[in-house]
Simulated assay, not measured.
Amino acid sequence: MRATLVLLGTLAIVACTPAARDDVTRSAARSVVSRVVIDRFPSVPVQPAIDCIIDNATTNELVGLASDAVLGPTAATTETVSRIAQRPQTLQCLATEGLPALVATTL
């Protein structure tokens, strides 16, 4: 069942223009990343964290995350999100985007 859903999703993405394909992939990845962020990193501002993770993921990671969106996050999804979150570029993004959002919500 999962393989069929992933195949259908992949075929839909392949049929799109490159820009549309990127938007669909990022949107699907964003949906699963949001679930991981909410569950794994409850104290960080969700939207800035999701943006930083998506913006610092490789194309292969985004495709993998997008395919995980079909049935929901797995242990591999959480591992991928955690690995992306630990990158220096992601940490810099979180410091510049996430901390101001965190401070604004506590004031």
Rank of each mutant, 00 (worst) to 15 (best):
I84W: 02
A104F: 07
I53W: 02
E61G: 07
D22A: 13
S34W: 13
Q89E: 15
T90F: 08
D55Y: 10
P100K: 04
R40L: 06
Q92P: 13
R83Y: 08
V46Q: 08
V6A: 12
A66V: 00
A15D: 00
Q86N: 12
V6G: 06
L62S: 04
T105V: 13
R21M: 12
P45R: 13
L91C: 12
S82D: 03
V81Q: 03
T25R: 12
G9T: 02
D39H: 13
T105W: 13
T10Y: 13
G72L: 05
E79T: 04
G64T: 05
V36P: 00
F41I: 07
I84N: 00
V24Y: 10
V14M: 10
T78P: 01
L62F: 07
T78V: 11
T74L: 10
V24I: 14
V37G: 07
N60I: 06
V81T: 01
C16S: 12
S31F: 08
A3C: 15
C52P: 01
T80Y: 00
L11K: 12
L94K: 06
E97I: 01
L94I: 08
T74P: 09
V81R: 01
T77K: 02
G72V: 03
P73E: 13
D51N: 13
T105A: 15
V14S: 09
D68P: 09
A76M: 08
V44T: 10
A66I: 01
V24Q: 10
T105H: 14
V36T: 04
D23S: 14
A15S: 05
V36L: 06
L5I: 07
E61P: 02
V37P: 02
T90L: 09
L94M: 13
Q86F: 07
R83L: 10
V70F: 11
S31C: 11
F41A: 12
D23R: 15
A49Y: 02
M1R: 14
I50S: 00
R83I: 08
M1G: 14
T96C: 11
T78H: 04
L94Q: 03
D55F: 09
P45Y: 02
T4E: 12
I50M: 08
T105D: 13
Q86S: 14
V63K: 07
T4D: 11
P42D: 04
A76T: 08
T17I: 03
V46M: 09
D68K: 00
V36S: 04
P48N: 03
V46F: 03
A57H: 03
Q92K: 15
A75Q: 09
S67D: 12
G9W: 01
E97V: 06
V14A: 14
D55E: 14
I13W: 04
L65K: 02
A12Y: 05
C93W: 06
D39A: 15
R35Y: 12
D55R: 11
L8C: 07
L65S: 00
P88E: 13
T90N: 06
V81N: 00
S34M: 15
I13M: 08
Q47W: 08
T105E: 13
V24C: 10
V46T: 12
C52L: 02
V36C: 06
P100L: 02
Q92S: 15
E61C: 02
P18C: 06
R40N: 01
P18E: 02
A19V: 14
Q89D: 15
E79C: 00
S27V: 12
V36H: 01
V24S: 11
S31E: 14
A66N: 04
V33Q: 00
R26F: 09
V46S: 09
V63T: 02
